[in-house]
Structure formats: structure tokens, C-alpha cells
Computed example of a mutant assay.
Amino acid sequence: MVKSWLFDIFNYPYDSRPEGLDPDLVQDEYDWHLETWVQAEDLGYDGVFFSEHHFTAYNMSPSPNLLVASLAQRTSRMHLGVMCNVTAFHNPRRLAEETAMLDYLTHGRLEVGFGRGSDDLEFKKEGFPLEDTRAWFEESLDLMEKAWHQPRFTHHGRFFDYDDASIYPRPKNAPEVWVTALSPSTVSWAAAKGYRIAMSFVPPAGLAGMRKAYEEAAVAAGRTPSADKIAVLRQAFVADTDEQARELAEPALDHVFKLFKRAAVPEDVDNLAKGYEGYSSFFRPFVTGGGVTFDDLVASGAVVVGSPATVRDQLVAQAEEIGCGHLINWFSFGQLTKEQTQRSVELYAKEVAPALRSLTLR
């Protein structure tokens, strides 16, 4: 079975200048997105993941855990989580407490996701050294694991130092962690730790290779890998016809990727900070030649746009090739309206999700 999720990066689709922000339009965005997420439960979605970004119109959920808490009070079945909390923007002891509180507020429906982050410009604005993100990330998770499972814990690391510390409350349900993974080292590290991984943007063949590397590292660590530990994020848009889907999705994607370029793409993609060298090939298309085109994204499989039959066939093929047990769908992006987004979410639920749910993957 392949589970189907919503993902929302929640960008501001109007004037992206700080002085161009309209509070009334922001209010409308929050309101109809929340309405869409609530409707997703009635449509049978397995859950919703939110994202964390800061300081630009690319994203309006700097505190996605607030969205989890809000939606938890309006739903009863769907799982709710963040993909991901960027550890460099958090004190891990404080984040462990907040995660524990959300476990209770969601009545055990919380999905816990963490990542070291990859948006160079966000870190520069915050003054956080990019070369420290991996060490901070790994130490943060080590500390949080202690805080969740031990009434009192001691931690002496490079960034944090605690004696006889505790959090209150500790979670009722032991968190099963998701980790966002774009680099081979993160994939192998997560597998060895027994964490689930969420991958994105890379074509299916590349993700299949990452899945294989995950399996090998898990087995080497004495763990049993499975499709249920693998999630793939895809930008997806469904309309009644292929032509209508492209007509609506192409300008919306153009808008959101312009925001992404301004918010996240480093100025010098060939000389990235230590630990991020492997990201050069990912960022380079955004700064060379004609940039990333709609056709490039569709051909790569990172974007899946079309009629229900087109989207169903492409996502089923990708899930089988990659061996992922979860498809996380980024439905709302750019200037897509409430009506267009909700129609896409409905068509996917009724005509795409059942085919994915019927798959048998190991």
C-alpha cells in the first residue's frame, strides 16, 4: 500500500516584496488552506505535512507546529506533521518539549520530521554557519532522543551541555522520526539510526538508487528496511484534462520557483559550504542557461501534472520504481486558487489514491 499525503509550503502568491504584504490577503490564504486540509480528511487522505522556512514570501509557516496544533483540533483521523523542522532554527531541548506536547494535542497522530536544512540564504539571514548544520542536526536528534525517553538525562556535546536535565511532558507515544534526505550521507546515517526518510526533487531513477543505499545501510546496521520507511515528495496538480492542468500549473510553478530562487538558491553554486558540496548539481539549473523550465520538471518526474489518469499512471510507475510507501503531494503552489487547488485535491483522492493504495511494495 502507498499512502497519500498533502504537503503545503504555503507561499504568498501576490506581491513578494516585504512592503507588498497585504494582511487581508494573508488572512484569506490561512483560512482557505485550513479549510482544504480539513476537507482532506473527509476525502480519505492519510495525513498532512507542513514545511518550515523563514523570512520570505516563499513560505508563510515559520512555525509549522502551530499549524499542526490548529488542525489537530479540527480533525480526528489524519496524521499531522512537519517535513521538516529545521533543527538549526531551534533549541533541541525546547523542540523536544514542543513535540511531546503535540503528541498529546494530536492524540498520537503526530508525525515527527527533522532536517538540517538546505536554504543558504535563510541561514545567512539568521547568521548560522552553514558548515555547522550537520553537526547541529545530528547532536540535536541525539539530545531529543534522550529527552523523549529518559525522565532525567545528561548530554555533553559540542553545542549543548546539560546535567540531570528533563522535559515536561515527555511524549505519550515514542516518536518515530522522519528525516528529510537529499545527500547520500544523510540517507545512510538515517538508515543506520532506523529513521524514516523523505526524499524530493530527484528523478525516479535517482531516488531508486537512494532507496537502495538506504536498504544497504539499514541491513548493515542490523535493521529491516521496508517501503513504509520511504516517502517521496512530488509537486502534483490534477485537473479534468491534461491541457487544463498544464494551463493552470505552468504559471503557478513559474511563480513559486522564482520565489524559491530568491529565497534559497546560493549565489555561487560551485563553491558551497562544507557538507553541502553535493547540492551544487541540484541548484545549478536555477542559475544557468534558461533556468529550470516546466517541461524539464515534468520530464524529470519531480512535477506530475495532468488529468486523473495521467497523474495516476505516472505516480504508480514512480512508486513501483522507487519502492516508496508514501507519496507526499505538494498540491498548492504559486497563484493556484482555492477552487483550483480543492478540485485537484478532490480528483486525486477519488481517482489516483485508490490505485496507489492497492499497490503491494515490500
Rank of each mutant, 00 (worst) to 15 (best):
E277S: 00
F201R: 00
K212V: 01
L233D: 00
P225R: 15
I230Q: 09
Y279D: 00
L248S: 03
K258Y: 15
A227P: 06
Y279G: 00
D270Q: 11
R246I: 05
R223H: 13
R246T: 05
D240N: 10
F257A: 07
Q235I: 11
P203K: 14
A220D: 12
G275L: 05
E247V: 04
K229A: 13
V265F: 10
R262D: 15
Y279S: 01
R223N: 10
A227G: 08
Y279N: 01
V265E: 02
E277R: 00
E243H: 04
D254W: 00
L207K: 13
A263P: 02
S226C: 08
K212C: 04
P251T: 09
A263D: 07
K229R: 14
F257V: 08
Q244S: 05
Y214S: 11
D242C: 07
V256Q: 01
Y214G: 10
A213L: 11
R246W: 03
A231P: 12
E250A: 12
G209M: 06
D268C: 10
E247K: 08
D240M: 06
D254G: 14
D268L: 13
K212H: 08
D228M: 07
D254C: 13
V219A: 13
N271H: 14
E267S: 04
L248T: 03
D268I: 10
P204Q: 15
D228I: 02
A218R: 11
A227H: 06
E215A: 10
A239K: 04
G222C: 11
E277G: 00
L248C: 02
A245T: 10
V265Y: 10
E267Q: 09
T241I: 05
A218D: 02
A264P: 00
E267T: 06
K229E: 11
G278R: 07
A263L: 09
R246E: 07
A213H: 06
V256N: 01
M210Q: 15
Y214E: 09
E216A: 14
A273N: 03
F257S: 12
Q244F: 04
A213G: 13
D242R: 01
K274V: 07
E277V: 00
A273F: 07
R234I: 08
L253V: 10
V202F: 02
K258A: 15
T224I: 08
A208W: 04
L253C: 11
H255A: 14
A252P: 06
E250M: 07
I230W: 02
V256L: 01
D268F: 14
E247I: 04
L259P: 03
A264Q: 09
A236H: 05
V232R: 06
A227M: 05
A231N: 13
E216C: 12
F257H: 13
L259I: 13
G275T: 10
V256P: 00
L253P: 13
A213P: 12
K212Q: 11
T224M: 05
V269F: 08
E247W: 04
F257N: 14
K274C: 00
P225M: 15
A239M: 05
A231T: 14
A218G: 14
A252S: 13
A227S: 09
E247M: 07
K212D: 11
V202L: 09
R223G: 12
